[in-house]
């Protein structure tokens, strides 16, 4: 038995230590917000936080995640009220929506580490996440907006 700490809950699973975290989350824990897109760390749809870092869960074996804090899109905020989630809605970012969990999880690390990201910083953080609908410009605008909301939220 392996214990995974996901979104501040401990889950006991019976799986090979080599199993990618993506499939443990989706197929064993039923947390389907994290998406399968390529399986080879090319598209970022499977991005989750492992001790706060935006790992690609499709290539991250569960043995690496044991004893670490795993956060998925379902656990990013208590009420879907992370500044990024609010900004995503405000800017009509999602289209098909399939990649957006990964996009938001990547952007969350950017915002935590850089509260005032430039366009270049956004490129540097987000180029690992593919969106076939091409929502990139709205992602960029929403990240700027979320950064603003985050700064203003902290001031008040």
């Amino acid at each position: 038995m392996t214990v995974l700490n996901v979104n501040e809950k401990a889950y006991e699973i019976d799986a090979s230590k080599d199993m990618p975290l993506l499939w443990a989350l989706r197929d064993l824990l039923g947390l389907t917000g994290t998406k399968f897109g390529c399986g080879v760390a090319q598209c970022g749809a499977c991005t989750v936080h492992l001790d706060g870092e935006a790992v690609r869960s499709c290539v991250t074996k569960i043995e690496r995640a044991v004893g670490k804090r795993i956060t998925t899109i379902e656990g990013l905020s208590p009420d879907s009220d992370h500044p990024l989630q609010k900004a995503w809605i405000e800017f009509d970012v999602p289209q098909c929506g399939y990649c957006q969990s990964g996009q938001i999880m990547s952007a969350a690390v950017l915002l935590r580490e850089n509260p005032t990201p430039t366009d270049q910083d956004i490129d540097d953080a987000m180029a690992g996440n593919i969106c076939r609908c091409g929502t990139y410009l709205r992602i960029r605008a929403a990240i700027h907006q979320a950064a603003k909301m985050q700064r203003e939220g902290k001031k008040s």
């Binding site: 991005t47 935006a54 690609r56 290539v59 074996k61 910083d121 953080a125 690992g128």
Partner: peptide
């Protein structure tokens, strides 16, 4: 690496199985 693109976000402690994996 930087932000959401740190090396170890994709590059694991050991080689990932298969062709064209990190």
């Amino acid at each position: 690496g930087v932000y959401a693109m740190k090396c170890s976000n994709c590059h694991q402690p050991t080689n990932s199985p298969g062709l064209h994996t990190p």
